[in-house]
Write a protein that binds this DNA or RNA. Structure first.
Length: 466
RNA sequence: GGCCCCAUCGUCUAGUGGCCGAGGACACCACCCUCUCAAGGUGGCGACACGGGUUCGAAUCCCGUUGGGGCUGCCA
């Protein structure tokens, strides 16, 4: 008994950086192949010379590696397989399954009668050059067996004679796709639903080429925007690389992507990749479109950030702290950041948020949120007394977190305020904001001198404005 | 226009004829915890598009309607 090994592939057209839809398709193919113990192939569909650029192809591979999606074979490049497509095209022509057509775009338009497209005018003109068209059968039907949608039937009367080879002799994707999937012995074709309508054409080509064992198909639901349209490069934020730059972790991105159309058992959502591989079944993928919800991505990213060992969090944050920081680069102090890292880690939903949570530590003067200043100092009747009190108390107390907490609580007491209220003006004076890491830890790492200086400056500003 | 796909809370989903007066998560609201914020805890809001069937019984099966989407290129 022969056991056929599963072979799946991700075959993107390098139209730019890898987008979230492509990444999800790659991920599902990868999960499927790994679950089945099969082979995962990467194939670049660059039959259009405009797309056959190394930098675009490198970008796709870089992003896949970042996501942890590795491949066993490839990348194969369709731009380098012209010979195979040419010989297939020749065979199709010789067997009467394809013919040359010299109709211009306008001619085709004029010859499109009714609802079934181009009427096949050139079928019997005996041309010896032009674009090569596949002679689609006029009767019968082709059934696509889809693992997610069941059988999908296409009436041949609705399939026009379509171009498989351009006038310049290069193959269009339908031909390349059919030939490659046959040559590369793909057993499963998992791709976006937008390709479902072209599947019967590929099947027809394969049949004409003598194929007797078509692959099993699975057309994944599209990922859509808030208007429920297919994600578009123009309107939507689709580049995975961009999410990376916005501070998302690859594990979080991958986890979120997996949740679009598929779901792990037992109401779990944060799932280690090994468990996904163990559980993933292509038949369980839902057929309906899914909205790409950045809010949820952020929530998941936050969970992954919090789960990181502190040292890893520090290391992962470095690029955001060292590249275009909001402070003079020479003022950054890794030891200081490490001291507050545990508190920052719990508050950041993306790594890109990290700098704004610690900027007051590396800036000569904090960036003041005017609304916060106004609320906690400008219009606060007790602000002056609290700033004075803090100045006095911090001047010679022990400089550690517990002591700062204690003397500030006492100060609040003396002013008849809850600590929560009393710390507000101090926080704004020191950090410039009303939110951030715990105050006493912040003061502790900031140091006595800078704390006192900032309190004095806040006092000066307050008195000069009143 | 034609062909095709899809249809459970705002969003992602669980649900495959009775366990569903529909469960979880994100978002939102309230409360608790608390030095702010976050995290965490508790509770709340909130959905089976509609109409026919089939069945003792339907979110689950069938048909239709409506709505949304994809494709319709010598792009992929």
């Amino acid at each position: 008994m022969t056991r056929v090994t599963v072979r799946a592939r991700f075959s993107p057209a390098p139209t730019g950086f890898l987008h979230v839809g492509g990444a999800r398709t790659a991920l599902f193919n990868w999960l499927f192949a790994r679950h089945e113990g099969g082979t995962f192939v990467l194939r670049i569909e660059d039959t259009d010379p405009a797309l056959s650029r190394d930098e675009l192809i490198d970008g796709i591979q870089r992003t896949m590696r970042w996501l942890g999606i590795d491949w066993d074979e490839g990348p194969h490049r369709q731009s380098q397989r012209g010979e195979a497509y040419r010989s297939a095209a020749t065979r199709l022509r010789e067997t009467g399954n394809a013919y040359y057509c010299d109709c211009s775009r306008d001619d085709v338009q004029a010859r499109t009668k009714g609802d079934s497209g181009y009427d096949g005018w050139c079928r019997d003109r005996g041309l010896t050059s032009g674009a090569l068209r596949f002679r689609a059968p006029d009767e019968g039907e082709t059934v696509v067996h889809d693992l997610i949608r069941g059988d999908v039937t296409f009436d041949h009367a609705t399939i026009e004679d379509f171009v498989i080879e351009r006038t310049d002799g290069t193959a269009v994707f339908l031909l390349a796709n059919a030939v490659d999937d046959m040559d590369m012995a793909m057993t499963h074709v998992i791709r976006g639903e937008d390709l479902l309508a072209s599947t019967p054409k590929v099947l027809l080509i394969r049949g004409a080429l003598g194929d007797t064992q078509p692959p099993l198909y699975a057309h994944l639901p599209l990922i859509v925007n808030e208007k429920r349209q297919k994600l578009s490069k123009r309107r939507d934020d689709v580049a995975v690389e961009e999410y990376r730059e916005r501070g998302f972790l690859p594990e979080a991105m991958r986890n979120y992507l997996a949740l679009l159309g598929w779901s792990p058992a037992d109401d779990r959502e944060i799932v280690p990749i090994e468990e996904m591989v163990a559980e993933f079944r292509i038949e369980d993928v839902k057929p309906s479109p899914a909205f790409f919800d950045v809010k949820k991505l952020e929530a998941i990213n936050g969970e992954y950030i919090r789960a990181l060992p502190v040292a890893t969090f520090v290391r992962e944050s470095l690029p955001w702290l060292e590249t275009d920081p909001p402070w003079p680069p020479e003022c950054f102090d890794l030891a200081v950041f490490e001291a507050v890292a545990p508190f920052v880690q719990e508050r950041a939903r993306t790594l890109a948020e990290v700098p704004s949570l610690v900027d007051f530590l590396f800036l000569e003067e904090p960036v003041v949120d005017e609304a916060a200043w106004d609320k906690s100092i400008g219009r606060s009747p007790s602000a002056e007394a609290l700033l004075d009190g803090a100045l006095a108390a911090y001047r010679d107390c022990h400089w550690d977190t517990e002591e700062l907490h204690r003397v500030t609580a006492a100060l609040a007491d003396r002013n008849g305020l809850k600590l929560a209220k009393a710390q507000a003006p101090i926080r704004v004076a020191i950090t410039g904001r009303s939110v951030g890491p715990p105050l006493f830890e912040s003061l502790h790492v900031l140091g006595r001198e800078r704390t006192l200086t900032r309190l004095r400056r806040a006092k000066d500003r307050l008195s000069s404005s009143s």
